[in-house]
Design a protein around this nucleic acid. Structure first.
Lengths: 225, 225
DNA sequence: GGATGTGAACGACTTCACAGCG
DNA sequence: CGCTGTGAAGTCGTTCACATCC
């Protein structure tokens, strides 16, 4: 469940690009994480079938995906993990630091702020907002809770490009509009609503209730036989 | 990002089924939520294009999806919301109560336990586990934290079929194995690892770090032009 | 008229299969 | 040899277009 903001009038070029399948992007993060773990465990060379098996992906698919990074593979050998990691980081854009703000100071935000994996990947949470006057001024995981009214100001100051939206469904669109107006570039939305955003703002939506429902449905299906 | 446990040797029948696209299932939950909201607002009839517009889905796609529920549509009119809702609930398996347990008593679990949308959809969280001795005995959102050693016992008693896994990556596979041994039917995994599960246990994986990375990548891409 | 249901065209993604290289 | 890179084939999902029905 995730949808990027539009991509109209693309395919402008006369074609000939190596083709970046929209779906392979979904797997890049998984390759990267796995490679980082394996690399730390001392693995220096890896084959497409090893990667494929670990991630439940066809090995040809893995090669197609990785080919998009350039011809890094060594026939008869495999891929050098270090090289792959560097190339993946670059392609994914995580070879730099991303600054992100969090709106909504509930348990979900707390969980996100606490998770150390983000910092390792170059993500920094630089500000936390909540509309609840009771919460403003409190410090959560090292960040003071601030009024959403300050979003424009803070966003201008921190140059944060990403925002995590973990507010009630009712206020999600309103807050999103504020973020857009303040110049945000991408929103990770946890509120159970379909946000309407201009095309230049990217969107990933994660709806936890939907996920649980999907799981129930899978079980439901498997029980019907 | 989600993958059901295998589905080998399927396609046994001689074909002829109305065809349930794996992807349309992803949308069923969204239709359902939207319809429930609109229905409460007094809407009694809805057209495929209305639904499509609200969810950014082609109207023909919506009709194809809904056709799988039977021929509920009224040519020239649309669909009766009540009928659609009932049919969707039945098809999704949420026209009954699902009992679920939660393993890992961190902030993410807290957020899930607190979210009221689950109860409305018939999901009940009946037990909470954590390996941290410090936490055992505490009461979180109304549920006492129990030792994972009690999983088999409690699972047998509560007949819970679903489990939410919100534990550190290191222990995720171990806990998953325990859950499987105890007879769980489906797992919603938040730990950043690829779980290996037997085919009869369904799996939905939500990796928050991957989602943020995907968002960064989308922004990264949009900035390259 | 207005909306459904659906075959057919289209496009995207995946898998196969194999040439080619170290 | 083993493993990559990739055209070709196959599968799946989406969109189009239109007959059909209220």
């Amino acid at each position: 469940m995730s949808k990027s903001a539009g991509d109209p009038a693309a395919t402008g070029g006369t074609g000939g690009e190596p083709k970046l399948s929209r779906a392979s992007v979904q797997r890049f993060s998984l390759y990267l994480r796995l490679l980082e773990r394996w690399s730390q465990e001392g693995l220096t060379v890896v084959s497409s079938s090893q990667l494929g098996e670990a991630l439940a992906v066809n090995d040809a698919q893995v090669r197609k995906d990785l080919a998009y990074l350039g011809s890094l593979g060594q026939p008869g050998i495999g891929y050098y993990t270090r090289e792959l990691i560097t190339a993946l980081r670059h392609r994914l854009g995580v070879d730099r630091t991303w600054s992100a703000i969090v709106v909504g100071a509930g348990n979900l935000s707390r969980a996100l702020l606490r998770y150390r994996g983000f910092a390792e990947q170059g993500f920094q949470f630089t500000a936390l907002f909540d509309a609840d006057p009771q919460k403003i001024g409190q410090v959560v995981e090292g960040l003071p809770v601030q009024s959403p009214a300050k979003i424009p100001e803070i966003l201008a100051a921190t140059k944060a490009e990403l925002a995590v939206l973990a507010v009630p469904a009712e206020s999600a669109q309103h807050v999103a509009d504020m973020l857009v107006a303040a110049g945000i570039r991408g929103i990770l939305n946890f509120a159970p609503v379909m946000l309407k955003l201009p095309a230049h703002v990217s969107l990933i939506a994660v709806d936890l209730a939907v996920q649980l429902e999907q799981l129930a449905f899978l079980v439901h299906l498997s029980q019907q036989e």
